[in-house]
């Protein structure tokens, strides 16, 4: 088992290496000259050339990749072309809102979607089941920004129950923090709920047909006990896997949700950086997001090996 864990951890290295090479190459071939941006308006070609040299932009591809990788391994993500601030600083400033949004969305989505899926499976074929499933398809079909605007219009502007935009730091109190995250979390959660509800229902249906469930029923275990103790426990692995893989959905959705609700997080940093072609920042956030994704899924894999004795390596 330790060998498996070690192998599994080592397996993330080539993946991250591919991401790094990909991200670097992507921006290496990018049009536009960072040196020209840095020099600003009214700079002469000589000024631009001088800056290009000082940034090392005139060196060959592999040399630049090596230098870049070395910097990153030391935790230096470079300096933003537009703000002249270290990329690591810019990312650090914006981690809290994004992390908060993701955690709240995750908790909200799981606590809504899993019961939904369980109930749908339990009541298979009924109106409830069909409504849950209809919602699930709908959740995939409506773009997150449409949901966001709709929510903001109804609950913030018309009813004035919740703030329409912004982010309040956790340090300023739990209430204000949560207040700002409710609407974005629902908007961002809609796709995620649809995904988890579907997978929960599907695995639950499968598990409910297993022999041990029938045995439990025969032994007189109550319906609720069967559903939430026996069945859900056994359905947990695929559900948790989907939650992990779905992190990509959350990240992609956060980019849009943060724009709609003016949350100063990594998603908006990404959009701003991409629209302004601030390459060091783009590289930094894409690397970070991929790293998080790989890490979350690694953690989920490793948790299985500890929890589920059926899994063989």
């Amino acid at each position: 088992m330790y060998a498996y864990v070690a192998r599994r951890i080592l397996a993330t290295i080539p993946v991250m290496a591919v991401v790094a090479l990909f991200v670097f190459s992507l921006l290496y071939i990018a049009p536009g000259d960072p040196a020209a941006v840095i020099a600003g308006d009214q700079a002469t070609p000589e000024d631009v050339e001088r800056i290009r040299q000082s940034l090392g932009l005139d060196r060959p591809y592999l040399v630049r990749f090596g230098a870049w990788l070395w910097d990153i391994l030391r935790g230096d993500l470079g300096v933003s072309i537009f703000t002249n601030l270290p990329v690591s600083t810019m990312i650090a400033q914006r981690i809290e809102p994004t992390l908060s949004l993701m955690v709240v969305t995750l908790l909200f989505a799981v606590s809504v979607a899993v019961p939904m899926g369980v109930v749908a499976a339990w009541k298979q074929g009924t109106l409830i089941d069909r409504m849950v499933m209809a919602f699930a398809v709908l959740g995939f079909s409506v773009p997150v920004f449409v949901v966001g605007y709709l929510l903001a219009y109804v609950f913030a502007l018309e009813l004035d129950w919740l703030p329409v935009q912004g982010y309040t730091s956790f340090r300023e109190g739990f209430g204000p923090w949560l207040e700002n995250l409710v609407l974005p979390a629902i908007a961002l959660g809609s796709v995620y709920i649809a995904l988890i509800a579907r997978i929960t229902r599907a695995t639950m249906l499968e598990v409910l047909q297993q022999d041990y469930i029938r045995t439990a029923r025969a032994k007189g275990v109550g319906q609720r006990g069967i559903l939430f103790l026996h069945a859900l426990k056994n359905a947990a692995v695929p559900i948790v896997t989907v939650i992990g893989i779905g992190i990509a959905l959350l990240i992609g959705g956060a980019v849009v949700t943060e724009s709609v609700f003016a949350i100063p997080g990594l998603g908006r940093l990404t959009v701003d950086a991409i629209l302004r072609r601030d390459y060091p920042v783009i590289q930094g956030v894409v690397l970070l997001f991929s790293f998080v994704y790989v890490l979350v899924n690694l953690a989920i894999d490793l948790i299985y090996t500890l929890l589920d004795p059926r899994i063989r390596y």
Binding site: A156, L157, P163, V164, Q165, F261, A262
Partner: peptide, 15 residues
């Protein structure tokens, strides 16, 4: 606030 709709709503809400 890059999104004018958000800015308008924030101003109206006193944010």
């Amino acid at each position: 606030m890059p999104d004018p709709a958000t800015a308008s709503a924030a101003l109206q809400n006193g944010e």
